[in-house]
Design a protein around this nucleic acid. Sequence first.
RNA 1: CGGAGUGUAGUAUAGUGGCAGUAUAUAUGCUUUGGGAGCAUAAGGUCUGGGUUCGAUUCCCAGCACUCCGACCA
Length: 418
Amino acid sequence: MLQSELFTKTRKEGPKDEVARNAQLLIRAGYIHKEMAGVYSFLPLGLRVLNKIVGIIREEMNAIGGQELFLTALQDPAVWKTSGRWSEQVVDNWFKTEIKTGGAAGLGFTHEEPIVRLMKDHIHSYRDLPKFIYQFQTKFRNEERAKSGILRTREFLMKDLYSFARDEKEHAKLYEKVKSAYSRIFNRAGVGRRTFLTFASGGSFSKYSHEFQTVCDAGEDTIYLDEKKEIAVNKEVLAPEVLKELGLKREGLTEKKAVEVGNIFSQGIRFSEPLGLTFKDEAGTEKPVVMGAYGIGPGRLLGAIVELLADKAGLVWPASVAPFQVHLVSLASENGETKSSADALYKKLLDKGVETLYDDRDLRVGEKFADDDLLGLPIRLVVSDKTAKAGKIEFKRRIEDKSELLSEAEVMERVVSL
RNA sequence: CGGAGUGUAGUAUAGUGGCAGUAUAUAUGCUUUGGGAGCAUAAGGUCUGGGUUCGAUUCCCAGCACUCCGACCA
């Protein structure tokens, strides 16, 4: 894409109404726009990152047999009344609204109720199980306090996966599958080294749930991490008997702030029973389906990546989620020979399928490089009179300080293999 | 929901009970081109409503918005 045509502008200074580093940088770089407290729009660059993250999650969900669907954001009160979760006393962060012709609708904060009701039409026999069903859907939560930039918002995209199993034993297998899929997702998204499986409170149907916590100072959660075993315990369940059960020693744990980028939990028959999602087993006995629910917030994960990897100069994206792989920066004046060779290189990169943002703007070097650092694309290629004279192209990685002069063939080889 | 704070130009910031300033961004012209250069000109602003006052952007009250700390987070 031509940067001269990109409608978003970078800013030298961050907004005064944000403190969180993720929002500061993402707004400065033109990736997101704040609509209201806790409500953010994604602009072209931000949307590209978000879609990359969604793509990774989708691949891993499909790899374990997940089937994608798209439920509605508007929720029918009836099914929520059946489960008991329409009540403000039970769930206090609903956004509710009225239907013109009478009645009400809620904006979904999760989707167990509608998916269970939906699955009743399709699951009748043990032959119909097990199943993994998932979606990417905007969730609405009327948080009393939005904070931490895009890490905790009132409207956000969520990948929610639901598992349906015949019994606890089968459920346990599904649960483990998701656990490993999640590890792959966070590895691929570039935060794997600092993201840890964390034991958290499980609710009424299992002793623990599991969270995936990315350690960084911006995190809202406090976890106790065993760096060697690479597992952690959420502060909410930290107790001597828990540590004993998990084989952890208090002395071996360090307290860390972390962002909950994913969670997985067993739900047993909490929803299938009241809503009547049952199947007949081999003996013809009617049984409630055993469920699990598994969430990842792609937007929050995006924010966590920023928090974890960004530096003083700006954003830093792993290649797997970067909006473009290459930032081609032309330092040539308009309509010269050097400009032509930069244009030609851009075309070659596109022909090779290399996602390239081409800074073809007629600006001074300082501003161009400052923008380059801020935008955080993995590789910067510079074409200038200097490089043209040497018959080379300057190659620099965002995470390194050094740059090197390479031939076009060498450059192509490196960027195509990304 | 409890506590604290802040609202001045697109953005970021000064300042004052009496004509509201700077930087940056924007527009135009000239100069300039390896780390946000320079000169000139132009356009652009006191959150909303009430009160005190001859006069309020400034003081007071309310509202709204935003931020931070805490509580909450299925």
